[in-house]
Design a protein around this nucleic acid. Structure first.
Length: 498
RNA sequence: GCCGCUAUAGUGUAAGUGGUUAACACGCAACCCUCUCAAGGUUGAGACUACGGGUUCGAGCCCCGUUAGCGGUACCA
């Protein structure tokens, strides 16, 4: 490896980072880090109408959150439009491209796909005519352009032969030149088109490996033609299988909502490494069955040639609030929450509580240890950081709601109106308010009252947290402390039997 | 229409150069733990490897065909 690896992630400025784009960015980043190469970010804003600073912000935010910081950039493709136009003109001068004076056709109301098919069917009978301007003498063409006549610039594609390249993921690819039209490089209004722009920029930025979505696979042949016309070295290509929504349909924000946006994962309590881990495994695996892989390990183990060829489905159920995104991603996030360093988790939870107005300065002062211990107690059954604010609310705040189902299940027994205050009384008299101390007191009280301990325990859980599930009851009591425990047990009689 | 890519349980992935009951994870179900479960443990259901041929003693793996899905095909990116 003599030349330093240089890769780029080149998204359109759509206002947010798409999970598919995030995976593409991730694979580029992994490859760059592994090869000690350079990772570049370039915004493909050729389509001027669709771009603005704000549209780029979401992408930057998403990448930064995931930890995929670029070594160079962001660069903006539109900045280089003049160079692209100049290159196209050079190709014309060199006889590798030509001016096409055909008036720009009217676009009817049919969709693109239909128009293309119609034209193809027509050509099947007519026979494909060669562009009449392809062989127009250069001097004549130049003169017409100088008089102000509008002309697009098209690349001259060889009439016979095949184009070949070896894709790192998809293997050997070939395409007949006869199947490739003389592509437009620059529109008649002077606007350089995508295929020219990417190639020019990739040459300029000395990109060695182009890692991108499979939707660019067949067009790669066209781009190679441009590289060759320009006399540039053709880089290596690695196309990535697409990520689909359930039903193998295109994953789009329009139809699938925010699940496709990376910042949504941040906002809904994902640990960035968890999403990175999940995304990495969507189309690639280390082969040894390992699933929990840190970014550092990913860098070591990642192998572009082991990337899958078949598209993957990003599984989620729009109707299910709990499974708002892929269940496996959620599971993975829960694993990270369970196993990550407690200090870091606590910091993330603290930020979340601050955001939701549940934070108290003392959690970082005299109750710091309590706070960390509580986070540790709760993390076993939470799947996102946001869960700490929602399901963890009773632990961090005194105003919390009673879940109707929990009340119905655990606070139905009318006897509880007497038992709960009684239990509160008992607990306030316990000398050591510890897990075992509280348990002993509760069981003794249950026995004295002739009720099963389970009734009191389950009722207490709901009385203390409003929920029917959670950590072991006595752990909850200790976490809340004697005072709050006693108070909540007494107040809960208001909801008994409701 | 034409060109191309792909095809292993519901989902994500395994199964070096063809070799035994197709493995793992998520999800799902049941059971256990028991004070709850959305935690933990155990077990289980779920795939005639898209379909049809062929080569072979033997095919998820090789060959041919079919089908389906997807992508491309544009003065979109």
């Amino acid at each position: 490896m003599t030349d330093k690896v240089r890769v780029r992630f080149a998204p359109s400025p759509t206002g947010f980072l798409h999970v598919g784009g995030a995976r593409t960015a991730l694979y580029n980043w992994l490859f760059a880090r592994q090869q000690q190469g350079v990772f570049i970010l370039r915004i493909e804003d050729t389509d001027m109408e669709r771009s603005s600073e704000a549209m780029v912000q979401g992408i930057l935010e998403g990448m930064h959150w995931l930890g995929l910081d670029a070594d160079e950039g962001p660069f903006f493709q539109s900045t280089f439009a003049d160079a692209h136009r100049a290159a196209a003109r050079r190709l014309v001068e060199a006889g590798k491209a030509y001016y096409d004076f055909t008036p720009k056709g009217e676009t009817d109301d049919k969709n693109v796909k239909e128009r293309i098919a119609d034209r193809a069917r027509l050509q099947a009978v007519t026979g494909k005519a060669q562009n009449p301007f392809r062989e127009l003498p250069l001097a004549e063409a130049r003169q017409r352009v100088e008089t102000g006549e509008a002309a697009a610039i098209r690349l001259k594609v060889p009439e016979v032969g095949v184009s070949r390249f070896d894709d790192l993921v998809f293997g050997p690819q070939e395409r007949d030149y006869a199947d490739i039209e003389d592509l437009v490089l620059v529109r008649s209004d002077g606007h350089p088109l995508y295929n020219l722009s990417v190639v020019m920029d990739d040459i300029e930025m000395q990109i060695t490996h182009i890692i991108r979505g499979q939707d660019h696979l067949t067009n790669t042949h066209k781009q190679i033609l441009i590289y060759e016309a320009l006399g540039a070295t053709v880089p290596r290509f690695a196309h990535l299988p697409l990520i689909f929504a359930p039903g193998k349909v295109k994953l789009s924000k329009r139809t699938h909502g925010k699940v496709v946006s990376v910042t949504e994962y941040r906002d809904r309590g994902f640990v960035p490494e968890a999403l990175v881990n999940f995304l990495a495994l969507l189309g690639w695996s280390p082969g040894d069955g390992q699933e929990m892989i840190s970014p550092q390990e990913l860098i070591e183990k990642f192998n572009i040639e082991a990337v899958h060829k078949a598209g993957a489905i990003f599984n989620f159920d729009k109707a299910d609030e709990r499974d708002w995104t892929d269940p496996k991603a959620l599971w993975m996030n829960a694993e990270y929450i369970k196993t990550m360093a407690l200090e870091r988790l606590s910091a993330m939870v603290a930020a979340q509580l601050q955001k939701d107005g549940l934070w108290r300065e003392e959690y970082d002062q005299e109750r710091r240890e309590w706070f960390t211990r509580t986070v540790d107690l709760l993390r076993a059954r939470f799947r996102t950081i946001v869960d700490f604010s929602i399901y963890g609310r009773p632990y961090f705040a005194d105003d919390f709601a009673f879940e109707p189902a929990a009340v119905k299940k655990n606070l139905k027994d009318e006897r509880l109106k007497e038992l709960l205050p009684g239990l509160a009384e008992q607990l306030s008299g316990v000398e050591a308010f510890t897990h075992d101390g509280a348990e002993a007191a509760l069981r003794a009280y249950g026995e004295a009252q002739g009720v099963k301990a389970g009734l009191l325990i389950n009722a207490s859980r709901t009385a203390l947290t409003g929920q029917s599930v959670g950590p072991g009851m006595f752990d909850i009591m200790v976490a809340l402390g004697r005072e709050r425990t006693v108070e909540r047990l007494r107040k809960a009689i208001a909801v008994v039997g409701t």
